[in-house]
Amino acid sequence: MTLVQLLVSFLKIGAFSFGGGYAMIPFFEKEIALHGWTAAGDYAKMVAIAQIFPGPFAIDSSAYIGFKVAGLPGAVVASAALSLPSFVALVFITRSYVKFKDNRYIQMLLAGVRPVVIGLLVSAVYIIGLKPVVKTWEAFLSHPLPVLKTVVLILLGFLAMMRIKANPIIFIIAFAVIGMVVF
């Protein structure tokens, strides 16, 4: 039963997660909350660990959630279901990809849906950066320091990336060290 649930959820994520990568975070978050698949905060931990791994972040997330829910079969079902929708679509597209690329209506649809990726990324900034520290409004007012620290660090990191275009891996390691010192 759990495997069927995993299959349905990950097929859905695979079919709709335009933007890939970090833009997928809101999808995973929603399904985890809906089914109570992992403890709160565990998925965020996975996101942190995934930063030092190679390969698609989507597979880190699927394999991890699938494994937590139903062991190795769960991991296989989740990863395969996630990859299936675009696999099928791309096999058909590659067969006639010149036609696909130049079809006017497909262009209109793809250009129309592109802005949503920005919205998904904005949402991902909140889920990954702020949600772990912002519990409730009251808690924020009585203990504003952790939230303020986080906001300032996010902005500093962003400015640093704009300025120096650091290698993401080195950037992540630097933030691990900053975390040990500041939090």
């Binding site: 970090y22 802005p115 920005i118 900034v125 990954i128 950066g129 704009m162 992540i172 933030f175 975390g179």
Partner: peptide, 28 residues
């Protein structure tokens, strides 16, 4: 745990940065 908290903050900054990179192709 503290290192992970730091990494997540770094990831949030990376996502913000990728928003600026994707803005040009997503918002025309």
């Amino acid at each position: 745990k503290k290192a992970f908290a730091g990494v997540l903050v770094g990831v949030a900054a990376l996502i913000l940065h990728s928003i600026t990179k994707m803005w040009k192709s997503a918002v025309t």
